[in-house]
Amino acid sequence: MATSSKFTKDIDVTTCPICLEEFKRPKCLPCLHNFCETCLNSYIITAFKSESKSKVRKSKFNCPVCREQVTPPDPTVAHQEWAKQFRLNHVIVSLMDQNKLKAKQKLCDPCKSMNDDVTAVIWCHDCNEALCEMCANAHKKLKVSKDHDLKNIDELEDTPVITSVQSCENHDGKNVEAFCKDHNQPCCATCVAIHHRKCDHVITLKEAANGILESKEISDLLERLKSTSDLNQDIIKKKRENIKMLEDKKLDIQKELQETRHRIMDSFDKIQSSFMQKLTQKHNQKVKELTDSISDIENRNK
């Protein structure tokens, strides 16, 4: 849990690289870069302004960050609809909800929508909203929300928020409520009524989730995750050993350099001492010769 908190603190993964503001409906591209749906849509429309000059209809666009070519799930539809096709990144939505919980002043989301700043005390996991005491009481009374999972915000500050509601990718403001086994995709009530009314196997999300934890796919996934985790732990252990080895090597080099310096200084001191001794002898010899010469000249002068 602490790792998640540190990660969100050290690296701002909730900021759109296009508008440089907090994500609004973050959409994830196959290259794993994320953008606000509206920002991505504007980028695609701008990129396609040159299409009118070309007779060939484009079916791809470049990622705004890594420039990798991206093909939308259905390139046959108008490019103005491409951004809606990419999956909503629920991990980032959860991180933004968690950051909202960690804010110094937590405001009630329903009250804030009415331009009224009221401190929130409750978090609804189903709606992913912060609620003040009055809104929380109303939440419990409403038929559609009386069974929602409500928690005290102070209890959630050190725990990650898991987004329990998935928004429909085709219909804004609608939550996923069912699962179509024929098309293997979640859908909202509108999707069921329009696109899946002829499907034979449309079930509730609860029915779709029954037994999923015991399924072979989940078992295989957990096994792969454990194997990957063990491998990562081995890599971390080896890298820490490498760090320790580098630290030891650094200390050895420092020690060797210090010893070499002392040896060089000792040798230099000996050379200097010998040189000074010879210099003194030579100096005294020359001074004596000159002094004797001066005495001789003085005697002659007398």
Rank of each mutant, 00 (worst) to 15 (best):
C191V: 03
V192S: 02
A193M: 06
A193G: 12
I194Q: 06
H195S: 13
H196C: 06
H196M: 01
R197K: 11
R197D: 05
R197F: 11
K198E: 12
K198Q: 13
C199Q: 02
C199N: 09
D200P: 04
H201Y: 04
I203F: 03
I203Y: 01
I203M: 02
T204H: 09
T204V: 09
L205D: 02
L205F: 06
L205W: 00
K206F: 11
K206L: 14
K206R: 09
A208Q: 01
A209P: 00
G211L: 05
I212F: 02
E214L: 06
S215G: 14
S215A: 11
K216D: 15
E217R: 02
I218M: 11
S219L: 00
S219V: 01
D220E: 15
L221S: 12
L222Y: 07
L222Q: 05
R224H: 15
R224N: 14
R224S: 15
R224K: 15
L225E: 06
K226C: 14
K226R: 13
S227I: 01
S227Q: 13
S227L: 08
S227E: 14
D230W: 03
D230R: 04
L231N: 15
L231K: 13
N232M: 04
N232T: 04
Q233C: 04
Q233A: 10
Q233Y: 04
Q233M: 03
D234S: 11
I235C: 12
I236W: 05
